[in-house]
């Protein structure tokens, strides 16, 4: 197992190299760079601009710039340098340190929310197959699958504005700095509720459908008859025997669901002004803040790949038949 994890982590490296190389190339296809705004200022000193260009290596061809960036990012001295954000005026590494936890938090709560809703619904839909409940939940699943996140985010904002029950976006209140740790926790939780629901809803449908299909497959299994023949009560047959088997494909699916959650979170972060890396990359792209874009790409892709890896590990842990070697 350990070697598998190690191998997967090593496989991450060429992937990230490919992604960032591609991204650098693409960004240089675009006209202009992040110094455009400095250049546009009428009183800008040409010497100053030239100095900046040299400093950021913009006077080199793009592939040289890429290797310069790469040289700094690779932690030779145990510290990665992701460059400097011209828009935010801070180190990209520092910026990532602020933004990444917010996105990870939102992704995890959304995934948890989606699971908590979808799994019981899927199980019930399977047990009461073809009932009214099953029909209604499958229609709702279609609906949840088809609603654009940003539209849902707008509705959530409207709801928050009209009722005043929830904050209008953001991650913390303005007086966050002066709060006690307990108040801080509740403040963040309060800000998280709506984004979590909005991001999570889209994944409920797919998780529920997979859960339902697997559960139905497993209910017909022979080990279910064995368990019943042993005298195991029906509830335990369903929730111990069938459930543990039906959950396996779902763990794999969670890896994929994570991908759509990270993507969905981007729109929600922008609409609800939630300071995660999705919010960050959007503004960075508008400003052609190239190092921020690269940093955000690296982080979001790493998140995705690690999410898949975690799902595989969880699957191996839950399903004894799977042993990676």
């Amino acid at each position: 197992m350990k070697t598998v994890i190690a191998r997967r982590l090593i496989a991450l490296i060429p992937m990230l190299l490919g992604i960032t190389f591609m991204a650098t190339m693409l960004m240089h296809l675009a006209p202009g760079d992040f110094l455009d705004q400095v250049r546009m200022q009428r009183d800008a000193d040409p010497e100053y601009i030239e100095r900046l260009e040299r400093e950021f290596g913009l006077d080199n061809p793009w592939y040289v710039q890429y290797f310069l960036w790469l040289k700094n990012v690779v932690p030779w001295d145990l510290r990665s340098d992701f460059g400097y954000s011209f828009h935010y005026k801070v180190d990209v590494w520092e910026l990532l340190g602020q933004r990444l936890p917010a996105t990870i938090l939102l992704s995890v709560t959304s995934l948890a929310f989606a699971w908590v809703i979808a799994i019981p619904l899927g199980v019930l839909a399977a047990i009461y197959k073809d009932s009214i409940f099953d029909r209604i939940s499958s229609i709702l699943a279609y609906a949840a699958l088809s609603i654009p996140e940003f539209f849902l985010a707008l509705l959530a904002l409207f709801f928050a504005a009209r009722t005043g029950l929830f904050p209008l976006g953001g991650f913390t209140s303005t007086e966050f700095e002066f709060m006690s740790p307990v108040r801080r926790f509740f403040d963040v939780a309060h800000h998280l509720i709506l984004p979590t629901i909005v991001v999570g809803i889209g994944s409920i449908a797919s998780i529920m459908r997979i859960m339902r299909a697997n559960f139905i497959d497993n209910i017909r299994s022979e080990y279910v008859t064995t368990a019943r023949a042993k005298g195991v009560p029906e509830g335990i047959v369903m929730f111990r025997h069938v459930f543990r088997n039906a959950i396996n494909p779902l763990i794999t699916a969670a890896g994929f669901a994570f991908s759509s959650i990270v993507s969905g979170a981007l729109m929600v972060e922008i609409v609800m002004n939630y300071p995660g890396i999705g919010h960050m990359i959007f503004h960075a792209i508008l400003q052609q803040d190239q190092f921020v874009v690269l940093g955000a790409l690296v982080m979001s892709s790493t998140m995705l790949i690690l999410g898949n890896l975690l799902a595989d590990i969880a699957l191996a842990w839950n399903d004894p038949r799977i042993r990676y070697d």
């Binding site: 022979e222 080990y223 064995t226 023949a229 088997n245 004894p320 038949r321």
Partner: peptide, 18 residues
Amino acid sequence: GREIAYIFQEPATSLNPV
């Protein structure tokens, strides 16, 4: 299970794999 117990045809699928 207590009074009447069963053995089935396919042991491979009659045991819970997990």
